[in-house]
Design a protein around this nucleic acid. Structure first.
Lengths: 176, 176
DNA sequence: CACCCGCTATATTGGGCCGATATAGATCGA
DNA sequence: TCGATCTATATCGGCCCAATATAGCGGGTG
């Protein structure tokens, strides 16, 4: 799922600038399963324009950089649908947190607890962020995805809270 | 969590060749939260050698490429611990599946069901793979991580099975 | 027995993507 | 009024992945 396809998908929902596409990822609860940086979005939009899959209209603004508003073209819609129908690449989950936990026995007392608590706090923030998304604008797909995310975070938090004490006990045992 | 740090971590558990490091990712249940390709592992090991964080001994083999067995040095251990103690970068979860589900209303009948079923089958495979890892060699960290993964996959499968019918109903409704 | 597939093992290359940085005026709160 | 934050585009270095190349060995199948 490359950035070009992601941009096309976003544009099927409505016109947007590169900047707005980036913001969608951060705010609207997409953040937990897709993301892209400016360094990939802008080149992607340029290439899509060259290929005729999107069109641009530049809105000149006084003393600001021109807003380049992108729209998906019929050819773009077709290409997007085609890419949805071919085999999806695998999900990838990369977790520096879990990797670090593998080596908890090497870490000094207390620091494992700190890492765990930070991670729990972070997951809680993510969960509330997911739950707060305005529900009235959501279609079937959005609902499915949002509830998927919520389910995962809930399960994760439950697991973390249940097992937190194991790493506290270690500190106690070491102190004896 | 760059590839160099990951390699260092693996090497704290014992010596290994680049090839063996790659295999560890695929087999030992690490696969669900870290991964690296040859194209990043080999250069990483070269640079770590230059920096004195690992050492190499070449085992010449008749008519095969030499085995280059890497060991972590004391400086390497120190550097690895230091990188575990500084702030961890965020987990990232990228899901072409969820992205595609966002656009389920654009897809032809039946194909959403197919995508869902494929995904469920795939998750089941991952779960059994995680559960099969030999448990006797596992320390505290390994157990925590493996059970974390299992918990997540179980929650995911439950959610998917509960909601699968929603996308079947659509096909039925369209057929009326 | 011949053949092919898959495994061990290293390495390179092209291209995709991230993170940081640059620019620059607008707007808003302290 | 001054700094911070926001809108908005863009580039660059560097990391990383996927694919490909090489090459002999071992095992299974016809």
């Amino acid at each position: 799922m490359d950035v070009r396809t992601i941009c096309l998908g976003i544009l099927t929902r409505g016109d947007a600038t590169g900047y707005e596409i980036k913001k969608l990822f951060e705010e609207d609860g997409y953040a937990f399963f897709v993301e892209a940086s400016f360094g990939s979005i802008y080149p992607a939009l340029n290439r899509l324009t060259e290929e005729g899959l999107v069109s641009v209209r530049e809105e000149a603004q006084t003393k600001r950089p021109d807003r380049k508003v992108y729209s998906i073209t019929p050819a773009g819609r077709q290409a997007f649908l085609a890419s949805l129908l071919e085999p999806l690449s695998e999900d990838r989950y990369r977790s520096p947190f879990l990797f670090a936990m593998l080596f908890c026995d090497l870490l000094p007392q207390g620091s494992v607890e700190r890492v765990l608590d930070d991670y729990i706090a972070h997951a809680e923030r993510k969960l509330t962020q997911l739950s707060e998304g305005n529900p009235e604008t959501n279609g079937k797909g959005e609902r499915f995805v949002r509830d998927f995310g919520r389910t995962m975070y809930v399960a994760m938090l439950q697991y973390l809270r249940e097992h937190r004490s194991e790493f506290k006990a270690e500190a106690l045992k070491a102190a004896e």
